[in-house]
Design a protein around this nucleic acid. Structure first.
Lengths: 227, 227
DNA sequence: TACTAAAATTAGGTATGCCTAACAATTAAT
DNA sequence: ATTAATTGTTAGGCATACCTAATTTTAGTA
């Protein structure tokens, strides 16, 4: 059985190796976890001795098969809590993450199952990220960055690529949330910023930096947007 | 602000001083928390220095005003989680306690509020114990031990006086649960045991020891049962 | 290649939360 | 009132999860 205190390590390693396919360094991990390298090194040795990860200075940190499965299970718990908090408890998008962090430590598969059912057995969490099933399989979606839209595209927000409070609060202010329908009125070619229409004909101009981080999927079939 | 790790102490002290009105000894507390006296002594010193409790060898442990308020808040959190787990997540009566123990550590008043609303703003938890309001006030109920019933009394189960798994499982086996309606067919005077009719005319004989620990309230007005 | 910057490691330290064993004080029982 | 049992206290230790400072290793660059 895995220790609660190991779970955040596995989740962190999972996320880091997802992004930068595979090579996770000690200091990266330390930075991500907001801990100092010696602390992390110590734990990494333990995790290695427990066969959750492999680690060689030159090669970085990798999840083993077992480790990845365990990590996916933690990810599952985390995302189910996030979904529950957002959909059922009506927490805003930006409040959800920190709370889920705490709740994910609660140790009861049965509870997760119930919470999952209560939330309507979703395939994606409120950020639009896929929820692994119990065996660790991830559902696939058609998500792509809003940035890749063409003029006139009608799409729906599936999630975001960044978790910082600054970003999430910005979206909350604009009232761009999960499942929000957006119409791309115009893409300005010179810098890629775009005018978006949404809600009751409100509109806003989003910078390419923002548009890159909003994940959407087209509503109309055969929409010509790039993936 | 109180530390999570202190909360279980305050809740324990609250429960112990509730039962035995007031004098809580070190070893009692240690036993209750399943810790050794030196461990508890250490923490008691800290809690005292933080003004949550007073402690003198001769006088035992007492909650201060602030301590009691904090304890009631922990009790509130705990009972709200228990209610949620039972009513909404369909956990059995006996599973609820341990999980609530873990969940009560999650630090978000807002979450408690939401969970409370989801559970239907109950005044009593699934054991029938009162849920303090935010200011620490306890609702009152007419609960009394089943043992005090007279022949023919029709009553409803509000809760129990004991938390041991043995006891809770026993009740679960009998299918005597919260809100179960019971008819007291006959009280046997020689030892106080009683024949109970419930559900679809099932009946069972309960020992006085058990009947003492089941908390009920009469359904018919002006029922002559003792309180 | 030699040098420097970055990353990893080692050594040693702190706080927390628990423990056992030994001793002291209090309470209860003969 | 003395003894025995219970309760409380002290001292010292262990594991965990962090830290800083100093050193070594690796990797990138002039």
């Amino acid at each position: 059985m895995i220790k609660t205190s190991d779970e955040k390590y596995l989740r962190a390693i999972y996320h880091l190796s997802e992004d930068k396919n595979n090579k996770v360094s000690l200091s990266e991990l330390a930075y991500y976890l907001d801990l100092k390298p010696p602390t992390v090194l110590e734990r990494v040795h333990v995790l290695q001795s427990e066969k959750w990860i492999t680690y060689k200075k030159t090669d970085g940190i990798h999840l083993t098969k077992t480790g990845e499965k365990e990590a996916l299970n933690v990810v599952r718990k985390h995302r189910i809590w996030e979904t529950f908090l957002h959909k059922i408890c009506k927490f805003s998008w930006s409040e959800v993450h920190e709370l889920a962090e705490q709740l994910q430590n609660v140790n009861s598969e049965k509870l997760i199952d119930r919470i999952y059912d209560l939330s309507g057995t979703p395939k994606f969490d409120p950020h639009g990220d896929p929820i692994p099933d119990k065996s660790g399989k991830l559902p696939v979606s058609e998500r792509r960055p809003l940035l890749n839209s063409v003029d006139g595209c009608k799409c729906v927000v599936l999630g975001v690529n960044e978790d910082s409070n600054e970003f999430l609060n910005y979206l909350t202010d604009l009232k761009i949330g999960l499942n929000e329908k957006l119409i791309v009125e115009k893409v300005f070619v010179f810098d890629g910023s775009m005018k978006i229409k949404y809600r009751n004909n409100e509109s806003v101009i989003l910078s390419p930096k923002v548009a890159e981080k909003i994940q959407v999927t087209c509503i109309k079939p055969n929409c010509p947007c790039k993936n």
